[in-house]
Design a protein around this nucleic acid. Structure first.
Lengths: 174, 174
DNA sequence: AGGGTGATGTCAGTTGCTGACATCGATGGT
DNA sequence: ACCATCGATGTCAGCAACTGACATCACCCT
């Protein structure tokens, strides 16, 4: 399916993609809601991992700590698939429509975190804020992890992001 | 241009919209990059307001305080146009493509805040984190402000969001 | 008057995406 | 073994978003 890698996302027509997979265009659209979705199937798994980890955190844990646990679990998964993540991200960031869709997936993750926090009894707006904060940290950490070439695992970037956001919200200057 | 309000976003074809404005479909696409952009023209103004306000904050202000000032300025503008915001948001939230585009605009705001902070000498990743945090607060506050029917101005929701996020990041439970 | 410039119209074409209907292979009950 | 059913796939026709190429027209400047 990585015809996108060869010719770029826009240049690859759905008909070609389907043909390459031995299928019809119509069949493609029965499996994926639209041309973009092919690249975002894994996001549902990520969301599941985040929610499950968050739900598994001790009931006494503060919301931000439960979110942090979820982010750490996610980071571990990404570290296992660095190559694949890199290839995928290269395609996504090269195209506006794909970046747009990525934001939708991130927003969905944020919503899922918030929902999961609410299930633990965290009231609004704290639940939504914690969900958004978690995804903000994830975004910034992921970006750093993808760009850097030193072999630092994503978990390090997550901790850096968590600490950085805590400092910022406490009125820190760096 | 609020043919969207009458028949819903999807039902209104670009040809119709253009005709209603006394123009051609082709001309429409010369003014707007795509069908969605018509509803997001104001976002550039909002971005300008945020950036200018942030740039106008005292050089001694902590990043989060500069961001807070920008959010307060934005809130004031929204309060002046509550009716228009409500009508617009009703259309946007009713359609997935429009919600998607809204996320792009919010991400752009976040990036602009970060850029502006960097110009003040705030290092990465603090600048990006503060930008993301600001937009997170904005999102949650806007949502609350739009849904509620009591006449509380958006500034109140912004303060609530800022305090809430500070509490969350400090390890608070509500 | 004439020439340049920018906004608009016209036209033809590509591509993402959808609905309706046909086909076909596997599965399961009798 | 037979057939009914069902899920996945193919076929076809069509709509609407979007684009490139070219013509036209209004307006301004000299």
């Amino acid at each position: 399916m990585e015809l996108y890698g060869e010719r770029g996302y826009e240049q690859a027509t759905v008909t070609e993609i389907a043909a390459r997979a031995g299928l019809t265009e119509r069949t493609f659209f029965r499996h994926y809601a639209d041309k973009r979705e092919v690249l975002f199937g894994g996001s549902a798994l990520l969301q599941e991992l985040l929610v499950d980890t968050l739900a598994g955190a001790p009931a006494t844990a503060a919301p931000i700590d439960a979110v942090a646990a979820a982010l750490r679990a996610a980071a571990a998964v990404f570290d296992e698939r660095r190559e694949q993540s890199l290839r995928r991200q290269k395609i996504v960031s090269a195209n506006a429509e794909l970046r747009e869709r990525e934001l939708v997936k991130l927003a969905s993750l944020s919503g899922a975190l918030a929902e999961s926090l609410r299930a633990r009894g965290v009231p609004e707006p704290a639940a939504s804020l914690a969900g958004e904060a978690g995804i903000a940290v994830f975004k910034v950490a992921f970006e750093g992890w993808i760009e850097e070439t030193d072999g630092r695992p994503m978990g390090v970037y997550i901790e850096e992001g968590l600490d950085g956001l805590k400092a910022v919200m406490a009125g820190g200057r760096a």
